[in-house]
Design a protein around this nucleic acid. Sequence first.
DNA 1: TTGTAGGCGTTATCAC
DNA 2: GTGATAACGCCTACAA
Lengths: 363, 363
Amino acid sequence: MVIPNQWIGVGDLSLTMCWGYDQITIESFWGYPMPTIKDVAKLAGVSISTASLAFNHPSRVAEETRTRILEASKRLQYRPNGAARDLRIRRTQTVAVLLHDLSGPFYSELVQGVQVEADRCRYNMVISHSNRQDSIGRLLYENRVDGAILLDPYVSDDVVLDLADQRFPMVVLDRDLSHEFMVSIAADHEGGAYEATRYLFGAGYHDIFYMAGPQNSLDSQLRFRGYQRALIEAHITPPSSPLAHGDFTEEGGIRETQNLLAGGHLPDAIFAANDEMALGVLQVLREHHIAVPHDMGLIGFDDIRIAQYVSPQLSTVRQPMYELGVQAMRQLLRLLAGEPVQQRIVLGTSLVLRGTCPVLSEY
Amino acid sequence: MVIPNQWIGVGDLSLTMCWGYDQITIESFWGYPMPTIKDVAKLAGVSISTASLAFNHPSRVAEETRTRILEASKRLQYRPNGAARDLRIRRTQTVAVLLHDLSGPFYSELVQGVQVEADRCRYNMVISHSNRQDSIGRLLYENRVDGAILLDPYVSDDVVLDLADQRFPMVVLDRDLSHEFMVSIAADHEGGAYEATRYLFGAGYHDIFYMAGPQNSLDSQLRFRGYQRALIEAHITPPSSPLAHGDFTEEGGIRETQNLLAGGHLPDAIFAANDEMALGVLQVLREHHIAVPHDMGLIGFDDIRIAQYVSPQLSTVRQPMYELGVQAMRQLLRLLAGEPVQQRIVLGTSLVLRGTCPVLSEY
DNA sequence: TTGTAGGCGTTATCAC
DNA sequence: GTGATAACGCCTACAA
């Protein structure tokens, strides 16, 4: 039940007109041309180069001159023009992190990792929520950043390879792509899934169902492979392809679980391709009074924060997101520095045992 | 219980050396100077200006010439230089969203709102996770973006006002700041808190405790004010300042609730300054077998996603994050266009009633 | 220690 | 329809 308060002071919500912006530059709006280094130099009574020196190599200009320049700069509220600088320097000292989805501490952790490494080397970082294709074009194709870390399944491999061909420094996450001038990093989806499935067998479950993600999801495919391997090891013939495909959402998990229940034959454990779907599974099981973990075991993948709050708490496979970010940035820095890199890096996952499966202490 | 798999193929984790980057430019790494529009023009046998026209005003150049230019551009893998363009155009067509914290669908929703509006007007958006002060300097002071939306309590008012003085187009969120050339947008924290508290009274609780956020949090102060107002309206003398200060984290909520229980006198309802703390409250109450909502009512603030997953589900005050993003970007566009703006906008909140307080149908 | 001059890659204004 | 040419603002040899 949601009770909306009234809207207060929102004023004009009508569409803002958008045409015509093309012709307008910022300073023309206000009639206040921005001061340039030239103005600073003039006011300080020095040449442009001295002014520039004062900012970039303070030691190379006399104390007295420098303070005069700094004062002038302050008086004029001078702000250097980044574009001019970048153009001249031929470097932006900035990297982009391209994400499709922002929600969840999941990505936030990744970004943290990147940030920390970037900071250490004085690199700046911007995140682009690359819903729009031209957004990535702007950043990468037009060299507005020196390099990029890409975690966005919706950017096509062609685009990525094209950029790599042009030696644009790039680290791609969770992609099955190799290129001489690119680093590809991924968590060990296959291994994590294998461990999870194997654990379920070890915990006494016999009939383990894999609830896949979207057909085209590489992650889901890899996880399925790990599942298959564990089945084979347990002398069970695995299906050649997943029996059910969700869409990585809670709703998808609900739907697929309902289908499963309607189908008559019930497995005694479910390994869901991600936590979101596992949440859906859990919900439907609860509605049908199927006891977890007694009547049905469940393990997810990702370790999203909510996993700890549902009851029973969700067992899952944790991806090392922070470490992924750290590694990604480190490798990007190597690319940027022209140092040799490994083309492919895989990071291990960990099995997090909580309430949706028995916790075997001897494991 | 967490079982780490081994690390696989991580290779060299040692520190990347960072000095010496200063002298190196991207192309020098590889020895591949990037082709410029000049190269394209030469290969196509036209002048630079014609090449430029072919890209920017295709209709103004002969069909045949144009295709020749495009071909040359493809052959050379030409990529325009953004910095040069921005410098010449004096506009980046990009805005920045400055966030302190990324986690939670909370901020993701805000960003979505901004994105949608930005897209409509062909503006690009980058997010900066402004942990580092120079990151915002780079973006804002050096004009690498045309404008910014700021939601980060850790950026000081001085910095903000300084930029505003210089007419840098900026929309600030959740700040008690006014400036002629700036738009300030906030959710109605005070009103939302008032509604929540009033509702608790209406639901039959008499002794409502406010668990505040950090002392210096404006949001928390405003919410306290709403709480006070509701108390006064109920003919109860409110405390002049909050009796307990958490830190907006779950752990803080736990700590403060434990203090409360230890203190002997128990209220019959708690209004927590945010959901994170409310989660902590809930946890401690559960541990002490205090029935919610029967023995204790509870309402939080924010409506984070987890609120729906705990049991009982958390009642809360929802901030219109998406709408906040939309509004912020719309106002920013107005600033950018030099159109008149309201200096201050307040958006209404809504009370979301779930399991931690009775749901009064007649409300 | 400071000034002169050239150029980074574009786009736009003019001529032709 | 196309081509010189001049900025945009900054940095850095090099010269003084």
